[in-house]
Design a protein around this nucleic acid. Structure first.
Length: 277
DNA sequence: CAAGTTACCTGACGGC
DNA sequence: TGCCGTCAGGTAACTT
């Protein structure tokens, strides 16, 4: 589920439901996610507070309350957030629930429990770019995401460009699917060394990253309207995949069969005809 | 320091 | 039908 576009879609879908609502109760499954869920702290601090903003940074969802406390939610591999009536049956992997003052509930469902929830006090929340996100790279859409930025970080990096693009310290939010798709669009082989790319390669990668992520967000956006009953559908950008999951199928550009290899332990797809070194 | 590997956890799927 | 191995959109702690 959760790639940058999906987190953005979830963020946009939740915003109107959460903004200016009061959190009235917190329930947890008791199971730990990647880290223990701060159940007691959420009870003590969040209950009774009004939600002010709902934003995204990298693949994290940021929910700020009236006193500037910040709840940060990461969805891991299988996490999902949805708005449900309080009376709706609780599902197996619903681990965190925030009851709101209108009878609806925010629910975090996460089968594999690779997700996480943090609660930052106001001071840490304000300083999050130096603290919590101190090692997180720029947003792909931000003005700090430039060819110069990539070239500086890539100087001594001989690792495959695909792994480099997926490194959250380099640039935020690019996961396995989009790294594959971006490199295909750019015509760059995923195993090419990061330090070997030149300025125009990076410019192309940046432009295509923005284009692909924007399109993916637009595709996912169509499902957010029925968030209340369905728990966030996954959108339909997958019909636009050019390489991901297409092992052996013909490339839409040149007809070569798409190849699948392992890079850094992750499934990596590329077109041997279109993506050169 | 860079880069590769493993661990975390559950469920779906294919082969036998 | 059932058992087993493999794989999965992420991150971070390890090891080399």
């Amino acid at each position: 589920m959760p790639e940058l576009p999906e987190v953005e879609v979830i963020c946009q879908g939740l915003r109107p439901h959460l903004t200016n609502r009061i959190i009235t109760a917190i329930s947890c499954s008791g199971k730990s996610l990647r880290y223990p869920v701060p159940h007691a702290a959420m009870n003590d601090i969040l209950c009774g507070q009004t939600i002010r903003t709902v934003r995204r940074r990298a693949k994290y969802l940021l929910i700020a309350t009236e006193d500037d406390t910040l709840a940060i939610i990461h969805l891991g591999m299988t996490g999902n957030l949805g708005i449900f009536p309080h009376s709706a049956p609780v599902k197996v992997h619903d681990h965190v629930r925030w009851l709101l003052d209108n009878g609806l509930e925010l629910r975090l469902n996460d089968t594999r429990r690779f997700g996480a929830v943090w609660l930052l006090p106001p001071e840490q929340a304000r300083d999050r770019e130096n603290g919590f996100f101190g090692n997180t790279g720029p947003e792909p859409f931000g003005r700090l995401c430039t060819p110069a930025h990539f070239m500086t970080l890539a100087q001594r990096r001989k690792q495959p460009v695909k792994s480099f693009l997926m490194d959250s310290r380099v640039v935020a939010g690019i996961g396995n699917i989009y790294a594959n798709e971006i490199l295909m669009a750019a015509g760059i082989h995923p195993l090419r060394q990061a330090c070997a790319l030149e300025e125009d390669n990076w410019q192309r990668i940046i432009t295509l990253t923005r284009q692909i992520l924007t399109r993916a967000i637009a595709c996912g956006g169509s499902t957010i309207s029925d968030f209340i009953n369905a728990s966030g559908e996954s959108g339909y950008f997958q019909v636009n995949f050019t390489v991901y999951g297409r092992k052996g199928q013909p490339c839409h550009q040149c007809g070569s069969p798409i190849e699948k290899i392992q890079i850094g332990g992750r499934a990596s797809y590329f077109c041997p005809g279109c993506q050169k070194g």
